[in-house]
């Protein structure tokens, strides 16, 4: 029975179907991105006439040129880099200490805090916009990048904390005990021994939060009204309204905006799987 399972013919069928399915997934994942790219390099005059062709008869960089030089897009882009970057760093720091305490300490009220964090995942966030606006307005934090960063950080901390906790769970307790005996306080041991060991986890969390903050539209739209504090998703929407839906330019802006998020994600996705595995072994 088993011998036939290893026969060359069966192997061929097995790996053939394996690669076929993998291929289908890759195509499904990439085709929409390809279409985005295609539209962005299609000249305006043939955008609709050659709408369904797999590749336009002429291509142009004009859309990119316009977006980079004639629009506010570089400014939005910079705002987004500041907001997503700061949110990622602050969230990861907060999630690291919280995840560490979840992983290492047993303390009164821990279950309540964990439950609280789980419940926050159930909030219809739309509902929080008006109250958050009301709380932030007197503090001068509406229409500001700082306000956005605070809100994004709070939204992302729960999931980032669970992520970081699973990374810490994979690291033996002995290590910080050894460090404490070697002369560290617990916090020093955490910072100098444990944190360097979870660098892949830190990278994964950074990337995860960065992409989330980079894409957020709803709060960016509702909490910010001025051009100067707008992030790129809002700016992208402005292509829809202001320029009577200039799709070519919008898609070009979209492709440009995709680059940092995708680059980040490409780098960290491996650590995400590794880190979750390490945590899963123990839990």
């Amino acid at each position: 029975m088993n011998v036939s399972g290893n026969s060359p013919a069966r192997k061929l069928v097995y790996w053939g179907s394996h690669y076929l399915m993998i291929g289908a997934f890759v195509v499904f994942a990439l085709f929409p991105l390809y279409w985005l790219l295609k539209v962005s390099v299609t000249p305006n005059d043939i955008l609709y006439t050659e709408g369904v062709r797999m590749w336009p008869s002429r291509t142009t960089w004009e859309n990119y040129f316009f977006v980079l030089t004639q629009s506010n897009f570089p400014h939005y882009f910079l705002n987004s880099v500041i907001v997503a970057g700061t949110t990622a760093i602050v969230t990861t720091m907060v999630a690291a200490v919280t995840g560490y305490s979840f992983s290492r300490f047993a303390f009164r009220g821990k279950m309540i805090i964990v439950a609280l964090m789980l419940i926050t995942q159930m909030f219809p966030l739309v509902m929080l916009i008006a109250p958050i606006f009301k709380i932030l307005a007197p503090l001068g934090l509406t229409d500001s990048l700082t306000g956005l960063i605070i809100v994004y950080t709070a939204f992302n901390v729960p999931f980032a904390t669970f992520l970081m906790q699973s990374f810490f769970d994979g690291i033996p307790k002995d290590l910080e005990e050894a460090a404490m005996i070697d002369g560290n306080t617990r916090f020093q041991a955490f910072r100098r021994i444990i944190l360097p060991l979870t660098l892949p986890g830190v990278a994964a969390t950074l990337g995860f939060v960065f992409t989330a903050a980079w894409s957020e539209l709803l709060f960016a739209l509702m909490l910010v009204s001025s051009e100067s504090a707008s992030t790129f998703p809002v700016g992208l929407l402005s292509f829809v309204s202001k320029f009577s839906v200039d799709f070519g330019q919008m898609m070009a802006a979209g492709v440009l905006a995709l680059i940092p998020a995708c680059a980040f994600f490409l780098l960290i996705q491996r650590y995400l799987v590794q880190g979750l595995t390490a945590g899963a072994v123990k839990g």
């Binding site: 033996p172 002995d174 290590l175 005990e177 050894a178 460090a179 404490m180 005996i181 070697d182 002369g183 560290n184 306080t185 021994i193 360097p196 060991l197």
Partner: peptide, 20 residues
């Protein structure tokens, strides 16, 4: 006293060597 202030050294079962 904190462990660090007790001036003792410890050898762990897992050795607890710093991997990095």
């Amino acid at each position: 006293l904190q462990p660090k202030d007790r001036d003792i050294a410890m050898v762990f079962q897992s050795y607890a060597l710093y991997p990095h």
